[in-house]
């Protein structure tokens, strides 16, 4: 992928209007050229993903949540379904 505002827009589903585009592209370029220095860092072949601290488990016990509360915070409901645009 190129560092191309249109391609990135399409991938992240962020469309820019003309006035925004100028400013955001400028901002993107400034930030990217600032960050590019990181590319030259040599990394080892060993895994480098940092494990967050903490313990990670939950017993397999079901607890029901009040689903009506959630639906109340949603819009475009149809017969309890979420009405959404469809893919082509």
């Amino acid at each position: 992928m190129k560092f191309d505002a249109d391609e990135i827009s399409n991938m992240s589903l962020i469309t820019l209007n003309r006035s925004e585009k100028k400013e955001i592209v400028k901002r993107l370029n400034a930030l990217k050229s600032y960050l590019d220095a990181i590319n030259s860092v040599e990394t080892p072949s060993s895994p480098i993903i940092l494990a967050p601290e903490g313990i990670n488990e939950r017993a397999d016990e079901p607890i029901a949540f009040d689903s009506d509360k959630i639906l109340a915070s949603f819009h475009t409901i149809k017969n309890r379904y979420i009405k959404a645009p469809r893919t082509l």
Partner: peptide, 9 residues
Amino acid sequence: ESRFSLVDY
């Protein structure tokens, strides 16, 4: 047929 999707989570 449908012009939209109905989502059930």
